[in-house]
Design a binder for these strands. Structure first.
Lengths: 341, 341
DNA sequence: CTGTTAGCGCATTCAT
DNA sequence: ATGAATGCGCTAACAG
């Protein structure tokens, strides 16, 4: 273990006081003799001095770090394309300003045992909640209970919490546009497919958007909703088997994300059902792997990276100015027509 | 801003000394009067006390946090399936033991400006290096320069560094087996496709494995290597166009990851070239989206999540015992035959 | 079994 | 322009 170099070690070598070194390290060398500055610089380099952030934090009560709590039922929560984008964007915004991102993924039931919740080790928290409405409310209350500022991701903010904000995207509008497109293509009998767990508010909004479009269309169109377990290829196939055992092929399958949409495509292809000839299929998100399917899914692009980025910027502004400038930030989704409709 | 509750506040309310509260918070209440314990518990709950980790860290010089530095040329570095798995696994292992994961993604050129490098704010660092051999060596030297223990991910550890370890997977063997399989299927003229940046050691090893299999096969088999830019659908298509302009269709395309493999499939399908009829195609990794292609890629499964997990466990053991038990941990890849061969 | 003392490494405040 | 004293919140070591 290398010996720990501290401010006073640097000061001794540079023959100045610890305070001068501290000032130097914090960029306050404007008013310093050039010679002093050089001596300090030399000592810092030679001794390979690294400031102890914990000690600094005790003094300044600023930690220069933001926590992200991802509530998810799976330990591989990052394998979700959305989460991945969010983390990238958030990390990018924070790192650019010298903040660190502390990542924690856990199930709703273990949230209250979270180290980010129980201990003060960040300047603020970002949260991606999942679960029933009641569960999500409880998550928000738990986070708010820390007394720290927080940012909700993909979840709208109840009025009750003053020192917080939320970052959302236009899921409902995007889904409505998607459904209208499907209806324009002549589809009348629509089926929504969604996961049976990980209930993000965003997914619920997508379903509502589709429902609105169908309702606006009038009597001629109808909508059913089916769950497809974890949403992977096998679970989706099982769900479709079950569905089609009791019903005839609908005009369109509208999945609440691209993974499910692609699983539907594979299922249909295996059974010789043509897309978009016999049935239309849509997804949602358009992240990376989205274009891997054949045919390529018609979908809606979600600004996941940008959303994380905005959350990070909002948090940084809150830290620097003491208040959140906006309580609610909404980013646009964009319709992405392709080969399956 | 909620008023900050500290140890002494809790102590005052519980009418005990700060030390008793400290002992209580740290689970040392075995030798405490039940009544005292209850009074402290009540005060902690009522006041909603959250220990200040920074202050504790100053005293104990333990931070209970591990850093992960991902060197990557893209700010959306997490969109790589491997990175995603690694982060999940590492975070899972760390969180399970009450450690926090601090995530930082940056380009090789900005590494020395990294906050995790310049400041002491973790108990140790994990690193996923990319770049030329020289770049990767430089990355390792920079990280080692912190004097903190570190774990290399997917990169072998030079002897020079005593307080470190590396976690690897059998890329070479996996690729060799894959290439043998392709050769057994009758392919003789093989083409390796790889990204032209983000040079992980793992990818280089895959290429070597294929080369070894071809060499062992003797004169009859031949191998070419082509780069395909960023490895996305468009760049891969462009690379294949360029390749096929000057050469006839090979017997097999062996991509160094699944994304590229899938891009190859899309390219071939668009040109009416049958897989595996006219040409074989293989990928590498088998993460999540892997099975989205049609036909499903023959590939090799990488234990990404497990690898991150082992890295976390190694780091934790290092912290608790003071030394790394193993300097080199190697996990197995597994051959995953499927529809494209 | 509980309380007192001291000090971790740093930055704010006020001297000089 | 630089330095000395002080204390951030917590816990190791010891005293009672």
């Amino acid at each position: 273990m290398a010996v720990r170099v501290k401010l006073s070690d640097v000061a001794r070598r540079a023959r100045v006081s610890a305070m001068s070194v501290s000032n130097y390290m914090n960029g306050r060398h404007g008013t310093m003799t050039e010679e002093t500055r050089d001596r300090i610089a030399e000592a810092v380099t030679v001794l390979n001095y690294r400031p102890d952030m914990a000690a600094r934090s005790v003094r300044t009560s600023k930690i220069q770090s933001v926590g992200l709590i991802v509530v998810d039922e799976s330990p591989t929560y990052l394998s979700d394309g959305y989460t991945t984008q969010l983390v990238s964007g958030l990390g990018d915004a924070l790192n650019a300003k010298g903040y660190t991102l502390q990542l924690e993924g856990l199930t709703a039931s273990r949230l209250s045992a979270s180290t980010l919740i129980r201990q003060r080790q960040t300047d603020g928290l970002c949260v991606l909640p999942t679960g029933s409405l009641a569960t999500r409310k409880e998550i928000i209350r738990t986070v708010a209970g820390t007394g720290q500022p927080f940012v909700l991701l993909l979840e709208s903010l109840p009025r009750a919490w003053p020192d917080a904000c939320c970052v959302l995207q236009t899921d409902r509008q995007g889904a409505r546009e998607l459904a209208r497109h499907v209806l324009e293509r002549g589809a009348r009998d629509l089926v929504v497919l969604k996961q049976s767990h990980n209930h993000w508010q965003a997914v619920a909004e997508r379903q509502v958007g589709i429902e609105e479009a169908v309702a606006q269309f009038g009597e001629a169109a109808s909508l059913k909703v089916t769950q497809c377990g974890s949403g992977d290829v096998a679970a989706t196939a099982a769900a479709l088997d079950a569905y089609l055992a009791n019903a005839r092929l609908p005009d369109a399958f509208m999945a609440t994300n691209d993974q499910i949409g692609i699983a539907v495509l594979k299922y249909l292809k295996a059974r010789g059902i043509a897309v978009p000839g016999d049935v239309l299929v849509t997804g949602f998100n358009a992240f990376d792997f989205w274009q891997f399917s054949d045919p390529v899914l018609t979908t809606v692009r979600s600004p996941g990276f940008e959303l994380g980025h905005r959350a990070g910027e909002a948090m940084i502004e809150r830290m620097e100015k003491g208040v959140f400038a906006e309580r609610r930030i909404t980013l646009e989704t964009t319709f992405q027509p392709s080969e399956t409709t």
